[in-house]
Simulated assay, not measured.
Amino acid sequence: MLKNEKIYVAGHRGLVGGAIVRALNDRGYTNIITRTHKELDLLNQKAVFDFFASEKPDYVFLAAAHVGGIGANSIYPADFLYKNMVIGFNVVESARLNGVKKLMNLGSTCIYPKMAEQPIKEEALLTGSLEPTNDAYALAKISVIKLCTAYNKQFGTNYLSVMPTNLYGLGDNYELQGSHVFPAMIRKFHEAKETGKDVVHLWGDGSPLREFLYAGDLADAVVYLMENKNASDLRTPTGDFVNVGTGKECTIAQLAETVRDVVYADVASSGRTCKMEWDSSKPNGTPRKLCDVTRLNALGWKAKVDVKEGVEISYDDFLHGDVRK
């Protein structure tokens, strides 16, 4: 990508899109196009087609999505399936019609079967049943991956897809009803500290194993791939995509302990802390989900931020950034 070529980042106000914009700015790209939802509704096919025809971007990062945690996915599956599929299809088809040189599609490791062999290789796609608590979102993401791969095959496009693991970082959603586990824990422990509560209630039993990736690392990875690799470099029998993660995991209980330690660090000398109570009537989700990042590492990229550092960055952002709702 040349520094002055036109780059459209769809979803620039989200966790991932915002990180991508910052990564592009840091590398000296000067012609970044963004649109808010009010300015461009990606569910409106005509509006998307007209936007691409008018702006003619050279490169596209598709980071726009309708997202949420287990609770939101369980309550609103139709929204997650319909909106994510339509957003993806509108952007990908518009890119094709307007000669976009390269497109980066952001997916999710929730695309993989619930009981996939661990660590999960890219070849595991569509080899088993999905996790029921987020199958609607996963099906939409799988469809967009397959669309990009089909376009590469039929039309000779250069559309790459990446499957990041569980994400967190600057500008995350800390609203308890719709957020993911990482930011939800930060808010719960912070509110317990502020109000003097001695117990924090958490979903499940704490046993699931999860891998967490700092959104800034993901942005670094996707910009690196766009600058240096093509869809053919990512090709597998199941599609033109690659996992993005750290290759390291922890239990949800271990994450909770880390978050609690960071949040209570400034009052630890006084002995203040809180207990954790797990609600096993709430779903755990997939028992374990660890990416195999062998292929990504072989392509020349590795994650840099570990979970403890990531919690510290995120909590500072929660306290001082414009992120709380």
Results as ranks from 00 to 15, higher is better:
Leu2Phe: 11
Lys6Gly: 09
Lys6Ala: 13
Tyr8Ser: 04
Tyr8Asp: 03
Gly11Lys: 05
Ala19Trp: 04
Val21Lys: 10
Arg22Met: 10
Ala23Pro: 04
Leu24Thr: 11
Asn25Trp: 07
Tyr29Met: 06
Arg35Thr: 08
Thr36Pro: 06
Leu40Met: 12
Asp41Arg: 12
Leu42Val: 13
Asn44Lys: 12
Gln45Asp: 14
Ala47Leu: 13
Phe52Cys: 11
Lys56Gly: 12
Lys56Gln: 15
Pro57Gln: 11
Asp58Gly: 07
Val60Cys: 08
Phe61Trp: 09
Ala63Asp: 10
Gly68Lys: 09
Gly68Arg: 08
Gly71Lys: 14
Ala72Gly: 02
Ala72Met: 12
Ile75Met: 07
Asp79Leu: 11
Phe80Pro: 04
Leu81Ala: 14
Tyr82Pro: 00
Lys83Phe: 10
Lys83Val: 07
Asn84Gln: 04
Val86Ile: 15
Val86Leu: 12
Val92Pro: 02
Val92Glu: 10
Ser94Gln: 07
Ala95Pro: 10
Ala95Asn: 13
Arg96Tyr: 14
Asn98Lys: 08
Gly99Gln: 04
Val100Met: 10
Lys102Glu: 07
Asn105Gln: 13
Asn105Asp: 14
Thr109Met: 10
Cys110His: 08
Pro113Met: 08
Lys114Asp: 03
Lys114Pro: 00
Ala116Phe: 05
Ala116Pro: 01
Leu125Asp: 01
Leu125His: 02
Leu125Ile: 09
Thr127Gln: 15
Gly128Ile: 00
Ala138Asp: 01
Ala138Gly: 02
Ala138Cys: 03
Ser143His: 03
Val144Trp: 02
Tyr151Lys: 12
Tyr151Glu: 13
Gly156Trp: 06
Asn158Ser: 09
Asn173Arg: 08
Glu175Pro: 00
Val181Gly: 00
Phe182Glu: 00
Phe182Lys: 00
Ala184Thr: 06
Met185Trp: 02
Phe189Trp: 01
Phe189Lys: 00
His190Ser: 14
Lys193Leu: 11
Glu194Arg: 08
Gly196Val: 03
Val199Ile: 12
His201Ile: 13
Leu202Thr: 05
Gly204Met: 04
Arg210Tyr: 03
Asp217Arg: 03
Ala219Tyr: 04
Tyr224Val: 10
Met226Arg: 06
Met226Cys: 12
Asn228Val: 03
Asn228Phe: 05
Asn228Met: 05
Lys229Gly: 08
Lys229Leu: 13
Thr236Glu: 11
Phe241Trp: 04
Gly247Ala: 11
Ile252Trp: 01
Leu255His: 02
Val259Ile: 15
Val262Ala: 06
Val262His: 03
Val263Met: 02
Ala265Arg: 11
Ala268Glu: 14
Ser269Asn: 14
Ser269Phe: 14
Cys274Ile: 04
Lys275Arg: 13
Lys275Leu: 07
Lys275Ser: 12
Ser281Asn: 04
Pro287Arg: 09
Arg288Phe: 10
Leu290Asp: 01
Cys291Glu: 08
Arg295Val: 09
Asn297Tyr: 05
Ala298Leu: 06
Lys304Pro: 00
Asp306Gly: 06
Asp306Ile: 03
Glu309Ile: 00
Glu312Leu: 01
Tyr315Asp: 00
Phe318His: 02
Leu319Cys: 12
Asp322Met: 11
Arg324Trp: 09
